[in-house]
């Protein structure tokens, strides 16, 4: 039982990190059908930017804020310079974002050096708490809480504000929204920046969890985020949360029991979903 819960928490924590990456991906795709292959690069930049500020100020919270700001700025630049010039051309978009991913990864090596950087959690989040028999590592609990908190905020914005309404409507029918006089490009810029900020936050949260950061860390998580976005359904935030939890937990259990197959199971899940239910397991109704 102890093992079960510990694996469950482990998986949930990973799932939340993937979820934060997937939120941006899924909304960006849902709104503009742009599949951002550079999302992993934004994730890695968030980790490096945040850790750099964390080590400068020695305050974890400022580091997290730094990561988010890095994400927002990078998101703005990316949307303006990379995504906007190739709006509407899917082939170019796919090709360009993958190339941009390469550039982002290499730029990290230029700015921060090619070596791994070790990161430890802040004083407050070190060690673990005991609940009865159960030992919970504090930092994992922190990640899970942050993830759920972000989900609630995103969900609140989507459900209860005007911009959220526009985003939700845009995912279902983009042309209709434009016909109603909404400047969808502007909305898309905001969504892109938010997505980038969440990706950066995810990278920063991962840093002390993984212990080290390196320039190529983005790809591995980006692929998991793709899996999640596919399973959860493009444009569906709640679906992404459920799918992320599923992928994280199944990954944790598989890694413990059959480590050889841990990645393969997730991949297989994605292939099955894509082949039989290309719109995802959790579809949105208009």
């Amino acid at each position: 039982m102890e093992l079960f819960f510990s694996l469950l928490i482990n998986g949930l924590a990973t799932g939340m990190l993937i979820f934060l990456l997937a939120v941006g991906l899924t909304l960006i795709f849902g709104l503009m059908s742009v599949l951002n292959f550079a999302h992993g690069g934004l994730f890695a930049w968030g980790a490096y930017g945040g850790v750099w500020i964390y080590s400068l100020t020695e305050s974890y919270m400022i580091g997290v804020a730094g990561a988010i700001i890095t994400g927002v700025i990078l998101g703005f630049i990316t949307e303006k310079l990379i995504i906007k010039p190739v709006y509407g051309d899917h082939v170019q978009q796919i090709l360009i974002t993958l190339g941009y991913m390469l550039v982002l990864g290499e730029l990290i090596k230029v700015v921060f050096g090619p070596n791994q950087i070790a990161v430890s959690p802040p004083e407050l989040l070190r060690g673990s708490i005991e609940i009865g028999e159960l030992l919970i590592i504090k930092y994992r609990a922190f990640i899970i809480i942050t993830g759920i908190f972000i989900f609630l905020i995103v969900n609140y914005i989507l459900k209860n504000t005007k911009i959220g309404l526009i985003v939700r409507a845009g995912v279902i029918d983009k042309e209709m929204i434009q016909a109603l006089g909404v400047n969808i490009n502007k909305v898309f810029l905001y969504v892109f920046m938010t997505g980038a900020a969440l990706a950066a936050l995810s990278g920063m949260l991962l840093a002390p969890y993984a212990g080290v950061i390196h320039a190529d860390m983005g790809m591995e998580y980006a692929i998991l985020a793709f899996v999640v976005v596919v399973i959860g359904g493009m444009g569906n935030v709640t679906g992404s949360l459920l799918a992320a939890a599923l992928v994280g937990i199944s990954g944790a259990f598989m890694a413990y029991y059959v480590p050889e197959l841990s990645l393969a199971t997730n991949m297989l899940l994605m292939v099955i979903v894509l082949v039989f239910r290309p719109k995802g397991l959790f579809t949105i109704r208009g």
């Binding site: 292959f37 692929i223 793709f226 994605m270 894509l274 290309p278």
Partner: peptide, 16 residues
């Protein structure tokens, strides 16, 4: 599959 999904899936398979 459509272009997006195909690109994504092949990326994932190569990673596998």
């Amino acid at each position: 599959l459509k272009t997006h999904y195909y690109a994504m899936l092949t990326l994932a398979l190569a990673n596998l």
